[in-house]
Design a binder for these strands. Structure first.
Lengths: 238, 238
DNA sequence: GACATTTTTTGACGGATCGTCAAAAATTCA
DNA sequence: TGAATTTTTGACGATCCGTCAAAAAATGTC
């Protein structure tokens, strides 16, 4: 154990601490209420030390999001290994995503902020680059499942349609639903809706694409149960 | 013409001017770059006067969004009158929404910001209440079309499903797609995708719900054309 | 251990923006 | 015209961001 590696490790540990605190403050106080002073105070370091890790407020949110994306990729990879048809594996990934966003609400908050226009302008190029790569990695897992589905003849694309479009649709559906849920609890359209709607919507969309077996051709609820036991309960955060 | 009504009119005109400027600055400089000082300067009024209209920065964005929602409701109502099946009328509304967001990019930006968590905390209760009502009004137009579809037997809901769920799915899809488009031009999944994807995704989802006629049972492109002429070109902003 | 050198941490500070409010300007009224 | 009222103004206090010279801690040398 050299001095250098110990210092490096301590630096990484402190970065983790700062990101954890940022997540906490972000959920509790929102984007406006998350000040660098508050993070420094809670971490019991001075502001200058915080700025050794992150260039600005937006940078720390990006770092938080990047960490989430890394976890998400391994979660998706884990879910992708679910034993079943491509359609069932897709269901497993969707359910895992649902679970992840519900379990770690800061992820949603950070995502909303980073998707809000012009925030990324202030973030360091290094972090943005890392984010793009991480997002690509996450998407790749589900694109691969869809490719397998096409290869297996379980998903037959209309002329001019691509696997990427199918995934984009599912992705957009998840994002949109979570964005709406986040904000629109007051809308009467949201009344009487059980929380676990995301998966149902995915089924409708995959049915629309004709991804076999269709949702009425197999027991989706039974798969739900299995995913909970075989994917989510066995997942360990890296 | 009393003195009072003239003053009231001038106040309204100035409010419109300020909102127009806010929209412009918001698109050009983003949330962070949109400062109250800049808005005041461009409007050639002092900051204090701006604060007579809006309580804070977030309040002016909400006012902008509220105005958009009002326009959107009348646009949706206009599109809902399209001559055709419920499915075609739904397509008309979707296409109109697509056109609106493309034509007025500030709408997207404002929406992203307002959906970002905790921003609304700072907005005056009056504006938030107005927003909720306006959103409800916009949604009501499309819920009504779906209800008509059910009544006409063109949309047969699975047991336990509601019209609200169908609409929520379409709504989420639009939001998610625009959010992704806004930010994720860099993702390789977005390459090779033509801009007008939103409508295609809606068709897939409606097909998934079994909303008759299905997209391959009628000429969706021809309806696209008709909507452009009969809805969008004839729409006048109220 | 004492002292010099390097690294890390600190918090005071300048700059920017927010939102306020007493004073100035404009308008209305008598 | 001049007093009373309304509206507008921009200087000001407060807050937060991001920096940097100085202080503190750690490391290296004898």
């Amino acid at each position: 154990m050299t001095t250098q590696s110990r210092k490096e490790r301590e630096f990484q540990e402190r970065e983790k601490l700062l990101i954890d605190i940022a997540a906490k403050v972000l959920v509790e106080r929102g984007y406006i209420g998350m000040t660098m002073d508050r993070i420094a105070e809670l971490a019991q370091y001075s502001k200058g030390t915080v700025y050794q890790h992150f260039t600005c407020k937006e940078d720390i949110i990006t770092a938080l999001h990047n960490r989430d994306l890394t976890v998400l990729r391994s979660l998706f990879h884990h879910a992708s290994g679910f034993k079943g048809t491509t359609r069932e594996r897709m269901q497993a990934v969707g359910q895992a995503y649902d679970w992840f966003l519900t379990t770690y609400p800061h992820c949603n908050v950070a995502m909303s902020i980073l998707h809000s226009s012009s925030i990324l302008d202030k973030v360091s190029g290094h972090q943005v680059g890392h984010m793009h790569g991480a997002e690509q990695g996450v998407i790749q897992v589900i694109v691969d499942i869809a490719r397998e589905a096409v290869a297996a003849g379980e998903l037959i694309l209309q002329p001019g349609k691509t696997v990427e479009q199918v995934i984009l649709g599912l992705w957009a559906m998840s994002m949109g639903l979570f964005a709406i849920q986040e904000k629109a609890r007051h809308l009467s359209i949201m009344k009487d809706l059980e929380p676990n709607r995301v998966q149902d919507m995915h089924h409708v969309l995959m049915d629309g694409y004709g991804w076999r077996p269709l949702s009425h051709e197999y027991d989706t609820r039974a798969v739900d149960e299995r995913v909970m036991h075989e994917v989510i309960e066995t997942f360990v955060i890296p």
